[in-house]
Design a protein around this nucleic acid. Sequence first.
DNA 1: GCCGTTCCTTGATGCGCATCAAACCCTTCC
DNA 2: GGAAGGGTTTGATGCGCATCAAGGAACGGC
Lengths: 234, 234
Amino acid sequence: MSPPSIKVQNFLSNLPLFKALGAQELDRIASGTREVRIERGGTLFAKGDPCSGFYMIVYGQIKLAIPAADGGEKVVEIIGDGQSFGEAIMFLEKPYIVSAQALADSLLLHVSKATVFDELARDPRFARRIIAGLSARLHHLVRDVGSYALQSGRERVVGYLLHRESERNGTAGSFTLPTKKGIIASRLNLTQEHFSRILHELAAEGLIEVHGREVTIPDIGRLRRHDSGHQPQS
Amino acid sequence: MSPPSIKVQNFLSNLPLFKALGAQELDRIASGTREVRIERGGTLFAKGDPCSGFYMIVYGQIKLAIPAADGGEKVVEIIGDGQSFGEAIMFLEKPYIVSAQALADSLLLHVSKATVFDELARDPRFARRIIAGLSARLHHLVRDVGSYALQSGRERVVGYLLHRESERNGTAGSFTLPTKKGIIASRLNLTQEHFSRILHELAAEGLIEVHGREVTIPDIGRLRRHDSGHQPQS
DNA sequence: GCCGTTCCTTGATGCGCATCAAACCCTTCC
DNA sequence: GGAAGGGTTTGATGCGCATCAAGGAACGGC
């Protein structure tokens, strides 16, 4: 039953959160870590569940979403390889306010609350990294809030595509959407239908090409100019 | 020119961030702190400015908002006595993404980045409090995102009123809006006009009474039942 | 191959909310 | 007191986006 703990340390040491920690620290953390496997469609936790630690994705993909009363949901984030989630709620004595569902068969590491708290008290560098991680997330969320309030659906889609392109390894100007379009639409505060129409519209104007989940941007500069809609950007 | 530093320590020791710290720690922090006075309407910092520390409000009121290209803005938060802001951006090497403007004549304390970093390295308790603060803010923002995406304008207003009422000291069922209705409207992702109409509508249904910024809720239970709009809550 | 499912698109319709515009406060200042 | 100027309300109009409803396309299983 004992997990291959060597592997865990190796994986941890490649994450920004744990990079350049000593072997001793890594051992301590690894001992408070357990592997979690979950298959596509499975629910890792639901809104209202208590929180016992945070998660990191070794491989796979997890969707964080706020469920609505009527069965709908708002996708807050789509998380992929090497990223972590659930830290913030760990430091508040509150249940989850989002649910986490696997979009692909995934392998996660769960680091227990006690381990984190312990390490926090010992190592100020670790605290600094936790703080940096939380700050970055807050920063992104504020940007999201701004885009929801100040940009049109079309602008949000263009912004998203440009962002994706910029992070994508591989052929310049071309990339694959990370998951189903309906999920991405919700992430952008749009319905699936409206998202589909916007993509169609952009394609009709020659700004992008879409084949399934494959998106090509023939002229990034031209698309970027459309970022602020019909108005010249300030 | 030397500020009355005794006062600063006393004020600090009453804030959650610094409560129960020793005199030595308080002295160190106070020495990295300076008073900032700003009058109503003044701009504390603008989007794009570099960040040199974080702020706490001794008295007054500050509005954090994301400016739009067309001169509009989205109010992210309205901050009052004893609260702090600007921590997160301090830990990222990025300029502000929001602007801060005084809604009333205010007295702030500015704690320098160096002081915070220094204390962070020394005192794990301080780190824990910073982390708790960031986590709480993240939590609130996620809730906001959910309400923007999943609730109608009317529901957001009702939620806001109930929240305000619950925090308000004084007569039960009655409170004063913290600032101009236009600002609150933007905070709730509404136009001033629409916000006004919603208040009028709620008043017409006898759920609230409004006189200027004075709001009275005759029956809180009844208003709460309207929180999820026309549908029974789950 | 065929079938069922899930995902995506396309069309028709309508609501929620923004926008534009004007009137009506309620202060504050001379 | 009157004038000037924010702040707020109210009305008319219209757009962006959701909703409802089908149809098509892609995928996986037998």
